[in-house]
Deep mutational scan, measured.
Amino acid sequence: MGFKLLSKLLVYLTASIMAIASPLAFSVDSSGEYPTVSEIPVGEVRLYQIADGVWSHIATQSFDGAVYPSNGLIVRDGDELLLIDTAWGAKNTAALLAEIEKQIGLPVTRAVSTHFHDDRVGGVDVLRAAGVATYASPSTRRLAEVEGNEIPTHSLEGLSSSGDAVRFGPVELFYPGAAHSTDNLIVYVPSASVLYGGCAIYELSRTSAGNVADADLAEWPTSIERIQQHYPEAQFVIPGHGLPGGLDLLKHTTNVVKAHTNRSVVE
């Protein structure tokens, strides 16, 4: 069995187990497998329904001669939608809004960016022009300005110390501490036991640490421990890039980060 097929099978099995364990909360999309990078042309966006009122959005972007996937989250909030992270750029984010209108038909009224990198804030200006209120932590807003990236308009308070959590509509926002970046936030959907790890969490097929220019490698494993301790009931975990899975993604990420750190020390 090929690795790609095995990865998709694991996603399907995880979703099936969740649907059985929580039949009222989960209505997993039966329309197909989780979209992969090879299936999404740059400039297009796919939506994948995880649970009743919960979707991931998947886009792709060219970077350094390669094409990478990027995940975000959409959560229903009454007759409105909360968006977590842009679709990595203005063109993708405009396509995301169009796809949401086509498939869901509810307005996106608020959006949260989970850290300051372009795959999370690139497209904020498109959201703002569409009347979406954009939010991020003060740290993310400051770092985005320093980096020359787009800056969300509103500040999220109460997320300055490791372990801080605040309720934001249908989700809980959690600051686990520094990891992929010093400002990275985690998003949890309690009604569906869905954990969105953003770039602080890796997919299972990833074996290298990737972009760690703004990471705190020493603190990252401790931050992941905080996530595990705060959300032990999480059933569906979405990484910032690639295929979702279960809580095993947290341990896998820790292993990859520690291996990278150990290699760096040896070198």
Rank of each mutant, 00 (worst) to 15 (best):
L96H: 01
G242A: 05
G32A: 11
N211C: 02
S205M: 08
V166P: 04
I201Y: 00
E150W: 01
I17M: 14
F26S: 13
P35L: 09
A165L: 14
A111Q: 07
S139M: 13
S205Y: 11
L13F: 13
L185W: 02
Y188A: 02
E225P: 03
Y135Q: 03
A144N: 05
E219K: 08
G43P: 05
D125C: 03
G148T: 05
L159R: 02
L247W: 15
H252S: 04
T153F: 12
A209V: 09
M1L: 07
A178Y: 08
A98I: 08
A165Y: 13
I84P: 00
V194I: 09
V11R: 10
E33D: 10
A218L: 14
E147F: 15
G105I: 00
V166H: 08
L249C: 02
E267T: 07
H241V: 01
E267C: 05
S193K: 14
G246K: 12
E267H: 12
S30C: 08
I58C: 05
V187E: 05
K8P: 05
K91H: 10
R141N: 08
P176G: 02
L185C: 04
V37E: 15
V37Q: 15
A234D: 00
I224S: 02
V54T: 07
V146I: 13
G32S: 09
P176D: 01
G240T: 01
V37L: 15
I104G: 00
L6H: 08
Y34R: 10
V171L: 07
L204T: 09
T36K: 12
L81A: 06
F63N: 04
P41N: 11
E150D: 12
V266D: 14
S137A: 08
K4T: 11
V108K: 01
D214Q: 07
G158L: 06
P190S: 09
N211D: 05
G131Q: 08
G245T: 03
T114K: 02
G89M: 00
D118P: 13
E147W: 15
Y34E: 09
L96C: 01
S113L: 04
R167L: 11
A209I: 07
K91P: 13
T153C: 06
P239H: 01
R142D: 13
L156D: 02
F174A: 01
N184Q: 02
L217R: 03
R206Q: 15
D214R: 03
E233C: 05
I186T: 12
H57D: 04
S139P: 10
G2L: 13
Y188D: 02
K258F: 10
H241Y: 06
T93Y: 00
L185E: 01
E44W: 08
P221H: 06
I104M: 05
H260I: 07
V187F: 00
I201M: 06
Y175H: 07
S205L: 09
K91R: 14
R76C: 06
A87Q: 00
G210Y: 01
A111W: 04
V187N: 03
E150T: 02
Y196F: 15
D119Y: 03
G32M: 07
W55D: 03
V75M: 03
N92K: 03
S223L: 03
L159K: 04
T114M: 06
F63A: 05
E219A: 13
R263C: 07
A215T: 06
I151F: 08
G169I: 06
G169C: 06
M18R: 08
L83N: 00
V67D: 15
S264V: 12
G242Y: 03
I224W: 02
L217K: 00
T254C: 07
Q103F: 10
T60I: 13
M1R: 06
V45D: 05
S56R: 15
I238Q: 02
D216H: 07
D164W: 05
E33Y: 08
A66N: 15
H230Q: 13
S30I: 09
Y202D: 07
V166E: 07
V187S: 01
D214T: 03
N71P: 02
L217Q: 06
V212K: 04
W88Q: 00
A90Y: 08
E80F: 07
S139L: 11
K4L: 06
A259G: 14
Y231A: 02
A129G: 11
V256L: 15
I74W: 02
D248L: 09
V266H: 11
L250K: 05
N149P: 06
S155L: 12
D183R: 00
L24P: 11
L83D: 02
L173N: 03
A98S: 13
V28C: 07
W55A: 02
H230T: 13
G2P: 14
N255F: 09
F116K: 00
Y68D: 04
N255L: 10
V265W: 11
G197R: 01
T253W: 02
D214W: 04
L5C: 15
L143S: 07
S62H: 06
L106G: 05
D119Q: 01
S7H: 11
K8S: 14
T254Y: 12
I100R: 00
G53Q: 12
V126N: 04
L249A: 01
T114S: 07
G240L: 06
F168P: 03
I104S: 00
G123C: 05
I186H: 05
E147S: 14
T222P: 08
L143I: 14
A136S: 09
P221S: 10
L10C: 14
L73V: 04
K8L: 07
A51K: 07
P41R: 12
A94I: 14
L204R: 14
V126L: 09
T114Q: 00
Q228W: 11
V54W: 03
P35V: 09
D164H: 10
G246M: 06
D29Y: 08
V11L: 08
E150H: 03
L127G: 02
I227C: 02
D164C: 04
E145R: 14
N255C: 06
H260A: 14
A234F: 04
R206E: 07
I186K: 00
A87F: 00
Q49N: 10
K4R: 06
D77G: 09
A90P: 14
D85M: 00
R141T: 06
H230G: 09
V187P: 04
L247S: 15
A95C: 05
L159H: 06
V11A: 11
A259M: 11
E267P: 13
I224T: 05
H117E: 00
Y196R: 02
T36L: 10
P41S: 12
T140A: 05
A165F: 13
A200S: 06
T109S: 13
P232A: 09
K4W: 06
V146M: 14
M18T: 12
S16T: 14
G131S: 09
A130W: 09
T182W: 12
Y34D: 07
V237L: 07
I104L: 07
P221R: 07
D29L: 09
T207K: 15
T14Y: 13
T86F: 00
T134W: 02
G65N: 10
L6C: 15
Y196A: 03
T253R: 02
A192F: 08
P107L: 08
T134D: 03
D118Y: 07
L249E: 02
F168A: 02
S31V: 09
H241L: 02
T114H: 00
H117D: 00
D52A: 11
G242K: 06
T114W: 00
V126I: 08
S208D: 13
N262H: 11
S113C: 05
G131V: 06
G53D: 14
D64I: 10
A111C: 08
G197Y: 00
V187C: 01
S161Y: 13
V124H: 06
N255T: 10
A209T: 08
Y188C: 04
G43K: 06
H57L: 03
F236V: 10
P170T: 07
H252D: 02
P138K: 08
D52K: 11
E233V: 13
K251P: 14
V266C: 03
F3H: 06
A21N: 14
D52T: 12
A178G: 12
I40N: 07
D125W: 07
S193V: 07
P23D: 11
E147G: 13
V256N: 06
G246H: 09
I186Q: 00
P221G: 09
H260L: 07
D79P: 09
L250T: 04
H180C: 01
S191I: 09
W88V: 00
I227S: 04
K102P: 07
L127M: 01
L250W: 02
P190V: 06
E99K: 13
V256E: 04
E233D: 12
T60V: 15
T114E: 00
V54K: 02
A179W: 04
D77R: 03
G89Y: 06
V257H: 06
P152Y: 02
G131N: 13
L243D: 15
A90L: 06
Y202F: 14
D85R: 00
V108N: 02
A90S: 11
E44D: 10
K4M: 13
L47I: 11
D29H: 09
L73H: 04
N184C: 03
